[in-house]
Simulated assay, not measured.
Amino acid sequence: MELSRGPIRMFAFLAALVLALPAALSAQMATTTPRGADEGDGPHERLILRGATIIDGTGAPPIGPVDIVIEGDRIIRIQTVGYPGVPITENRRPSGATKEMDMTGMYILPGFVDMHAHTGGAGKAPQPEYAYKLWMGHGITTSRGVGHGPMMWALQEKALAARNEIVAPRMFTYARPGEAWDRGPVDSPEKAREWVQWAAQVDVDGAKIDGLKLGAMDPDIMAAVIDEGKKHGLGSVAHLGQMGVVR
């Protein structure tokens, strides 16, 4: 019995279309404005935040007042300097600051992590830096893009953020298997492993396993992406279409 090749051709067409879209979208992505002289400073040799109250995110009650010592981009010490409503014990305070900030009456929390983020594009935020600054203004200091935008563009933005050249959170770039390379769709476990190896070389952080509306990624291909990703330190995230979840 000969099976109809109509659905197969349609699936191949849609897969090729999805892989071609990032190249077209790259031209639409606005340039992120370089960090201005008035948009923050640091890192500092020894920054001390004075008199803050900490909420550490574990469910424990707030702690404070405390002085927080940061050297470079690392918190190296959190020193309790008193009790609420009681004068601060000055002889317990760390010294040697190259910069100090008075945080009396303020709360400090760990930065929030946005685990599913997109930026850019006329339909969402034409200026990516609008999204970056919106996140930063709401305490989001790490963003996992699935993706932030076209893969190679997102990797460039990630590098700019890491060098502190733009105002943006720390970024992690996840991409669909097959995105941005020139070896065709990922349609076999072997191709899946090749793409993961290539993605690791260009500094991709993980794979977005995407289920199209006509069906999800084949289980053996999905398994190869995840297995090879573990070998190279890449994460994985799933976005399965409703027509594919039963697989």
Rank of each mutant, 00 (worst) to 15 (best):
R176N: 06
D227V: 06
A224W: 00
A16S: 15
P189K: 10
T33L: 08
M222T: 14
L134M: 15
M152P: 07
R163V: 09
A23P: 03
I54L: 10
T104I: 03
R170H: 01
D187M: 11
G51M: 02
G6K: 06
Y107T: 02
A16C: 14
I140L: 00
V86F: 10
I76D: 09
D114Y: 01
G244M: 05
Y83P: 12
W198M: 12
Y130P: 00
G206M: 13
M101G: 09
G64H: 06
G178E: 12
M217D: 11
F172W: 09
R144P: 15
G59I: 13
G206A: 13
A27V: 14
F11Y: 11
Y107H: 02
G120D: 01
A97Y: 14
R46N: 04
G206E: 12
G244T: 03
G147K: 09
R163M: 13
G206P: 11
L134F: 15
V18L: 13
P84N: 04
G178Y: 08
T33V: 15
Q197I: 03
A207C: 01
H148D: 10
A30R: 00
D218A: 04
P185I: 12
A60I: 09
D41W: 08
H118G: 07
E90K: 15
I221Q: 07
T98Y: 04
P185A: 12
Q197V: 05
A20I: 08
W135G: 00
A223I: 12
I78L: 07
